[in-house]
């Protein structure tokens, strides 16, 4: 089974951890202990092929900026999250994409741009078209999600798997799972 590591980036308070928690725990929250090996891992079937996703989430530790490159180095796909009720978080996301490309030294890194908190439509500060335009500029998919009302969360993680599959295809001589 393919195994992928996905790094979730974005400034503090945009709801990264809520997305991760929603994805890895689904509805059975009681069972989970964040220190166990499997906590951030989940099996996911995309286009009828199963794979395992491990989420490297920087939530709650955004202030440890110097560790970000280490996380990026270890990730194969990237979810860049801003809060659509916070314009500043949208501005913060741009340098993070530059950073990914700098660390990966490769422009076609699998990335998805995500505007979270779509449930707070009335407080929106970043329009869908702004988000879409930025994603187009980067040549990556764009989604608006809500961890709170469980909107598009599974779709988001399925899409990043697709992106990573797509990126892995041209050079099959470079298997990603050498560590296993």
């Amino acid at each position: 089974m393919r195994e992928y590591k996905v790094v979730v980036l974005g400034s503090g308070g945009v709801g990264k951890s809520a997305l991760t928690v929603q994805f890895v725990t689904g509805t059975f929250i009681e069972k989970y202990d964040p220190t166990i090996e499997d906590f951030y891992r989940k099996e996911i079937e995309v286009d009828s092929s199963p794979s395992v996703l491990e989420i490297l989430d920087t939530a709650g530790t955004e202030q440890f900026a110097s560790m970000r490159d280490l996380y990026i180095k270890n990730g194969q796909g990237f979810i860049l999250v801003y809060s659509l009720v916070n314009q500043q978080s949208f501005q913060d996301i741009k340098p993070m994409r530059d950073q990914i490309i700098r660390v990966k030294r490769y422009e076609k890194v699998p990335v998805i741009l995500v505007g979270n908190k779509v449930d707070l439509e009335s407080e929106r500060e970043v329009s869908s078209s702004e988000g879409r335009a930025l994603a187009e500029e980067w040549g990556c998919p764009f989604m608006e999600t809500s961890a709170k009302s469980k909107t598009m969360v599974d779709e988001l993680f399925a899409e990043i798997v697709r992106q990573m599959n797509y990126a892995a295809q041209p050079d099959k001589d470079d298997p990603c799972c050498s560590a296993c």
């Binding site: 809520a18 928690v21 202990d33 220190t35 709650g60 530790t61 560790m67």
Partner: peptide, 15 residues
């Protein structure tokens, strides 16, 4: 320390 903080943070988030 940042992993300790992250554990507490997620413990808080999931419960």
């Amino acid at each position: 320390f940042n992993l300790f903080v992250k554990d507490i943070y997620f413990l808080h988030k999931i419960h």
